[in-house]
Design a protein around this nucleic acid. Sequence first.
DNA 1: TATTGTTATACTCTATAACTATA
DNA 2: TATAGTTATAGAGTATAACAATA
Lengths: 181, 181
Amino acid sequence: MQSRPSRPPIAFLLTQVGSHAAGQFAERLAPLDLSPPHAGILRAIAVNAGMSQQALSGYLHILPSRLVTLVDELQERGLIERRDSPEDRRVYALHLTAKGQSALEAIGRIGREHESAVCAPLDDGEREQLGALLLKIANAEGLMPGVHPGFGRMGPPRNNPGTSELSRGNGKLRRTPRRGK
Amino acid sequence: MQSRPSRPPIAFLLTQVGSHAAGQFAERLAPLDLSPPHAGILRAIAVNAGMSQQALSGYLHILPSRLVTLVDELQERGLIERRDSPEDRRVYALHLTAKGQSALEAIGRIGREHESAVCAPLDDGEREQLGALLLKIANAEGLMPGVHPGFGRMGPPRNNPGTSELSRGNGKLRRTPRRGK
DNA sequence: TATTGTTATACTCTATAACTATA
DNA sequence: TATAGTTATAGAGTATAACAATA
């Protein structure tokens, strides 16, 4: 009886390869000085222009409190705008700027590069197979089509923590609240 | 010309499904009050009994400073021992206890459950295919067979942060250093 | 009273530097 | 001087509570 070479469990391979792919994507995004959550936000706003931060929070499963920071960063860099919603003075309507549009296109190019790199060892038939199998699992688990994975910390190598161009930096963002009673 | 239904990019599916699988595994592990890094450490020590914390750090890509805490937690719960190394008084030789052995067996059972759950929507042939395709990518990326993915924060739902049974708790662990000059 | 965006706070993980004991 | 284990500290993500403005 010849024992077939045992393969690692599929669940383990999925976690390992998925985590690696996520890290690679974050690294490829780093030159744009954007993180995966930033990219996810830009994409969501492009698809659904004018959406509120609450809606975005629910869609991307990012907590509202964290969204404030991420949206601030994108706004400071001129990629998105917070416009006042005409009907409800509590909410912001989020929109891409022209600069945000071209950033999104750059992200698209990086995404295609990334896809090629990840799939490099597979031929066309194998890619077709793998896509179908993964989609089957994703559907069974009830995962949403455009909705990202866990963005939180599986990101890029934080080599110089705190030296990022991102992070804080405050120059009058956000609406001025109504004064007076 | 009929457009085929476009599938999400494979890289994206990998990240999404992999992250979800990792989260599920962490949840299944939670009843044992163990985290994925704990499980990885127990497994590594079982395979390579007597290894040092440095070796473990390199093997699992967990920083030595973080390993101290994780090893402390496993030792407090009687799953592993830090034995003095006879040749070099600086290093600890890490060993599983009997309790650690049975914990590892419980982890194995959970791992098999997890594997079944993840692969539930696939038949035997599809599992074979998927395993082969993932392994091809993992090899191309130079990922090590037993070596974990990014354990860091894609874990279980931290519902009551700080109320975990784990975490701190100090009752004389570790060697007493040589006194006197 | 409920909701949107926001601030404040606590905990965890990551990463680096520095320290102690030993080599 | 170099190394193993440890401690200290800073940064970033997660999560919850609370608050002001508005509904």
